[in-house]
Amino acid sequence: MHIAPASPFTPQLPYVYRCMVFSPDIYQDADYAHFNQPLPDKLHRAVTKRKAEYLAGRVCAASALQPLGHTHFVVHSADDRAPIWPEGIRGSITHSKGVAMAVTTDQPDVLGIGIDIEHLMTDKQESELRGQILRDDETDAFTALGQDHEKPLTLVFSAKESIYKALYGVVSAFFGFDAAKLIAHDREHLQFILTTDLHPTLPTGTAITVHYQSTHDMVLTECVHLNTN
């Protein structure tokens, strides 16, 4: 499988990013050895697309760890599928239709970080998924977002994915899309508030900012959870 550096986005957070394009249609299991990555036992029976995405994400992660002094670290997955980073490192991995990205940081004030790339939903997908992604009380903010963006649901979905990744390390439990409510946006940021107590340090009403940007067919969202104490 071909994996090569790419730069469809300009990440906004000041951390180490690596983005690559890959070709899952020509994936082979031998590609894991070629890129010095182990093929996890749980993926042996996975479909080709899943194996290719996992490999591309781990290649990005390995590259993003090198500037932080981890030159041969393999990012395994925990039972909950969360990446296991080196001690003192926070990171996130995302992939979508032949594009993969990873971000890492060793800054001590970062409690968690989340990134998400999504290709734009079709009109049919937006119609079918809206009820699963949006809260009823997000209608006004979502309508306003739709006046500035052709595919607003893709943005909100991606943003809530990034929020989940950024907060999960502290929360250590599943929470759904309804835990975050879109309240406002500008040209580069989406503003959310938490609608439930996720953790003693993340009570209802906590403000969450998500950075976003888009190309003609994709969006990237970024969220960081900082220790403000």
Score class of each variant (00 low, 15 high):
residue 196 T to S: 15
residue 121 M to K: 02
residue 150 E to T: 13
residue 133 I to G: 05
residue 91 G to K: 03
residue 173 A to G: 07
residue 159 A to F: 07
residue 22 F to C: 08
residue 195 T to F: 02
residue 180 A to H: 03
residue 97 K to R: 12
residue 36 N to T: 08
residue 152 P to V: 09
residue 177 F to V: 13
residue 65 L to G: 00
residue 160 K to N: 09
residue 2 H to K: 15
residue 35 F to R: 04
residue 201 T to C: 14
residue 55 L to E: 02
residue 105 T to D: 06
residue 68 L to P: 03
residue 204 T to F: 11
residue 199 H to Q: 10
residue 105 T to P: 11
residue 107 Q to G: 06
residue 162 S to Q: 03
residue 166 A to F: 04
residue 223 C to K: 01
residue 69 G to Q: 12
residue 221 T to L: 03
residue 149 H to D: 07
residue 142 F to G: 03
residue 157 F to Q: 04
residue 147 Q to T: 11
residue 53 E to P: 08
residue 11 P to Q: 00
residue 28 Q to R: 14
residue 81 R to W: 04
residue 71 T to L: 15
residue 166 A to V: 08
residue 19 C to G: 06
residue 136 D to I: 15
residue 133 I to V: 15
residue 61 A to H: 05
residue 150 E to L: 15
residue 100 A to C: 09
residue 200 P to R: 01
residue 222 E to N: 12
residue 98 G to Q: 06
residue 121 M to S: 07
residue 25 D to Y: 08
residue 71 T to K: 15
residue 189 H to Q: 14
residue 85 W to D: 04
residue 51 K to D: 03
residue 201 T to V: 11
residue 195 T to A: 02
residue 36 N to Q: 15
residue 181 K to Y: 06
residue 8 P to Y: 00
residue 74 V to R: 09
residue 112 G to T: 03
residue 228 T to H: 12
residue 14 P to T: 05
residue 142 F to K: 03
residue 65 L to P: 00
residue 28 Q to E: 12
residue 121 M to R: 06
residue 145 L to V: 08
residue 57 G to R: 03
residue 157 F to R: 04
residue 224 V to K: 00
residue 179 A to W: 00
residue 58 R to P: 01
residue 214 S to G: 10
residue 196 T to L: 12
residue 39 L to E: 05
residue 115 I to H: 02
residue 80 D to S: 13
residue 213 Q to G: 13
residue 156 V to W: 02
residue 147 Q to I: 14
residue 123 D to L: 12
residue 4 A to V: 12
residue 137 D to V: 11
residue 12 Q to M: 11
residue 97 K to V: 05
residue 25 D to R: 13
residue 35 F to L: 11
residue 34 H to G: 05
residue 47 V to G: 05
residue 129 L to C: 12
residue 56 A to E: 01
residue 160 K to W: 04
residue 224 V to Y: 00
residue 229 N to G: 15
residue 19 C to V: 07
residue 5 P to W: 04
residue 190 L to I: 11
residue 167 L to K: 09
residue 175 F to W: 10
residue 4 A to K: 14
residue 208 I to E: 03
residue 158 S to P: 15
residue 54 Y to P: 01
residue 69 G to P: 06
residue 57 G to F: 02
residue 170 V to N: 07
residue 30 A to R: 12
residue 154 T to F: 10
residue 155 L to K: 01
residue 141 A to H: 07
residue 192 F to G: 11
residue 141 A to N: 02
residue 121 M to P: 12
residue 60 C to I: 06
residue 23 S to W: 06
residue 102 A to V: 05
residue 57 G to M: 09
residue 149 H to M: 14
residue 181 K to L: 10
residue 29 D to E: 14
residue 155 L to G: 04
residue 135 R to L: 15
residue 174 F to M: 13
residue 56 A to F: 04
residue 101 M to N: 01
residue 41 D to M: 10
residue 171 V to M: 08
residue 99 V to A: 04
residue 133 I to P: 05
residue 152 P to Y: 01
residue 75 V to T: 12
residue 51 K to G: 03
residue 210 V to K: 02
residue 61 A to N: 02
residue 69 G to S: 10
residue 96 S to M: 02
residue 130 R to Y: 06
residue 134 L to D: 02
residue 68 L to S: 03
residue 199 H to V: 11
residue 142 F to V: 05
residue 173 A to V: 00
residue 132 Q to W: 05
residue 57 G to E: 01
residue 181 K to H: 14
residue 186 D to K: 12
residue 228 T to I: 13
residue 202 L to D: 08
residue 172 S to M: 13
residue 75 V to M: 05
residue 102 A to G: 07
residue 195 T to W: 00
residue 151 K to W: 09
residue 198 L to R: 05
residue 105 T to G: 06
residue 138 E to P: 14
residue 136 D to Q: 07
